[in-house]
Design a binder for these strands. Structure first.
Length: 440
DNA sequence: GCATAACCCTTG
DNA sequence: AAGGGTTATG
C-alpha cells in the first residue's frame, strides 16, 4: 500500500512518535496555525496512512503547508505571486525552517524513554501522547501571544492573535483551502512587527477589538522594544532590530534572559518562562500555571495554594524546582507532554481520575459513557427547552468534540490493532505496525 | 518581601 | 465563577 503523495508536496520521513502535528499545533504553544480537515479518502477511510488535516502557517515571506501520515511529513511553501527567486533555494529554505521550528535534531523518542524511566506518572501517558515536542518559535510573536494569555483560554487567545495579524500586518498572499471545501479564499497575514504595535493609538484599537486590559500591555511592550532597540530592518533577515535583539537572549543564561523579559509590561514570571522555553532555547524551564500546579498537587505531592488560591512566588518556585528535579535537562519539554495530556480537550483520556476530575468544567463525553449533559434542543426532566442560540453553541461544541474523538479513536484503534496482532501470531505484520508507530 | 484586589471578556 | 496572570497597593 503505497502512500499517495499529495500534489505539490515534498516528503520528509518522520514517525508520529517523533512529531505529532495534531497534538503539537493545538496544545497552546503557537496560536497561529490554520487547520483544515481534508475530505475523507475515497476508499480506505480508516487508513491511518492518509493525512486527515492540512496545517498552514504564514511566515514573513511564504505560507508553509503541512500534512502528516503515520511515517511521513508532507510539506510545501507558497510564495506571493510577484517575487522571484531560485526554486531549489526556496525549497531548501523551507526544509531548513521546518527542521529548525520543530527542532528535529532532538530525538524525542529517546527523551520519552528517559522521562518514563525517571517518572511513573509520565510512563502512564507516554503511549497516548506521542510526538509532543517543543516548537522553536519566533520570540516576538511568542512574547506578544503570551501577554494575551493571562486570565484567558486558548480559544480566545487564538482569536486575539488572529485579529492582531489581520489588523497590523498587510496580507502576504491569498490561498484557496486545500480541497473541495466550501470555504473561500483566505488572505494570509504574517505576525506584525514591533513597530506596527508600538504606536500609542494601538491601545484604543485593541481595546475595541476586545483585548481588555492586555491592550495596554501589548502596546507598551512593543513601544519599549522599539524605544530601546530601534526599528531598523535587516535586509538579510527582514527582522527589525528589536526582534533581532530578542533573539540574542538565546545566547544568554536563563536567569539573565528572564530578568530582561520581566521588564516588559504584562510579563510576569509565568509568561517570561513560557517565552524562555518556547522561543529562547531554555529547555529546562517549567512555566507554572494553575493547570501545572494542579498536576503537581495531584501527582507529585506538592502542597496546595494558600487559602486565597493565589500562586505565590515561593509556591511557583517550589513547583518548578520539584518538577525540574523529576524530569531533568529537558524538563520543560516533559512538562509540555503532561500539560497536553491534561488539557481540557483530552480530559476523558488524560490524567484525570474519575473520582477527582481535574477539569470539572468539561463533562466526559467518552464513547463508553454518554454525557449527562442535556442533548441540544431536548427538554429533559427539570430543564426548560434550550434556546436556538444556545443550541447552536452546543452543536458547535459537540462538533469540535467529535473531531477530537475521531483522532483519539484512530489512535486507540491503532493501538488495539497492534495489540491484537502481536498476540495473534502474525508477528511480521505486528512488527511492521510497531516499526511504523514507534519510529526507527 | 508577601498577601489582596482590580482588571477585560467569554463560557460553563 | 474561573479561565495557562500581572500590576498596583497595603
Amino acid at each position: 500500500m503505497a502512500t499517495a503523495m499529495p500534489a505539490g508536496f515534498r516528503a520528509l520521513p518522520i514517525p508520529i512518535a517523533q512529531l505529532s502535528l495534531s497534538a503539537v499545533l493545538k496544545c497552546g504553544q503557537s496560536f497561529r496555525w490554520s487547520i483544515f480537515p481534508l475530505p475523507p479518502a475515497e476508499q480506505r477511510v480508516l487508513d491511518a496512512n492518509v493525512p486527515t488535516y492540512e496545517y498552514r502557517l504564514c511566515l514573513r515571506d511564504r505560507v508553509v503547508c503541512l500534512r502528516q501520515s503515520m511515517d511521513t511529513l508532507f510539506y510545501r511553501a507558497v510564495f506571493p505571486p510577484t517575487v522571484s527567486g531560485d526554486h531549489q533555494e526556496r525549497e531548501a529554505e523551507t526544509l531548513a525552517w521546518i527542521r529548525d521550528y520543530f527542532q528535529l535534531d532532538i530525538d524525542l523518542i529517546d527523551l520519552y524513554r528517559q522521562w518514563s524511566l525517571a517518572d511513573p506518572v509520565f510512563h502512564r501517558v507516554r503511549d497516548r501522547f506521542e510526538g509532543i515536542r517543543m516548537l522553536r518559535q519566533d520570540p516576538f510573536e511568542n512574547l506578544i501571544s503570551f501577554i494575551c494569555s493571562s486570565n484567558n483560554n486558548i480559544a480566545r487567545i487564538t482569536k486575539m492573535v488572529k485579529s492582531l495579524c489581520l489588523t497590523y500586518s498587510p496580507p502576504l498572499l491569498t490561498l484557496p483551502p486545500p480541497a473541495g471545501s466550501d470555504l473561500t479564499e483566505e488572505p494570509y497575514h504574517p505576525f506584525p512587527s514591533p513597530s506596527a504595535l508600538a504606536a500609542p493609538e494601538v491601545t484604543a484599537r485593541l481595546r475595541a477589538l476586545g483585548f481588555g486590559y492586555r491592550a495596554d500591555f501589548i502596546q507598551k511592550t512593543a513601544a519599549m522594544l522599539v524605544d530601546a532597540h530601534g526599528v531598523t530592518v535587516n535586509s538579510q533577515t527582514t527582522l527589525e532590530s528589536s526582534e533581532a535583539w530578542l533573539r540574542t537572549l538565546r545566547k544568554m543564561s536563563t536567569s539573565d534572559a528572564r530578568t530582561e523579559l520581566l521588564k516588559f509590561m504584562g510579563v510576569g514570571r509565568k509568561v517570561a518562562d513560557c517565552v524562555l522555553l518556547m522561543s529562547l532555547d531554555k529547555r529546562e524551564v517549567i512555566p507554572v500555571d494553575t493547570h501545572v500546579h494542579q498536576i503537581a498537587i495531584k501527582h507529585y505531592g506538592l502542597r496546595g495554594a494558600t487559602k486565597t488560591g493565589a500562586m505565590s512566588p515561593k509556591l511557583y518556585e517550589e513547583v518548578s524546582t520539584k518538577l525540574a528535579a523529576v524530569w531533568g535537562e529537558y524538563a520543560g519539554w516533559a512538562h509540555s507532554v503532561l500539560f497536553t495530556a491534561d488539557l481540557k480537550s483530552f480530559a476523558s483520556y488524560g490524567l484525570a481520575s474519575p473520582s477527582t476530575p481535574s477539569t470539572p468544567s468539561t463533562p466526559a463525553l467518552t464513547p463508553g459513557s454518554v454525557s449527562s449533559r442535556e442533548s441540544p434542543g431536548v427538554a429533559t426532566p427539570g430543564s426548560t427547552l434550550v434556546s436556538s442560540k444556545r443550541k447552536r453553541t452546543q452543536l458547535k461544541h459537540v462538533r469540535s468534540r467529535l473531531v477530537e474523538m475521531e483522532e483519539e479513536t484512530l489512535a486507540q484503534l491503532a493501538t488495539a490493532v497492534e495489540e491484537t496482532l502481536s498476540t495473534d501470531g502474525d508477528s511480521s505484520l505486528a512488527d511492521r505496525v510497531k516499526r511504523r508507530r514507534r519510529g526507527a
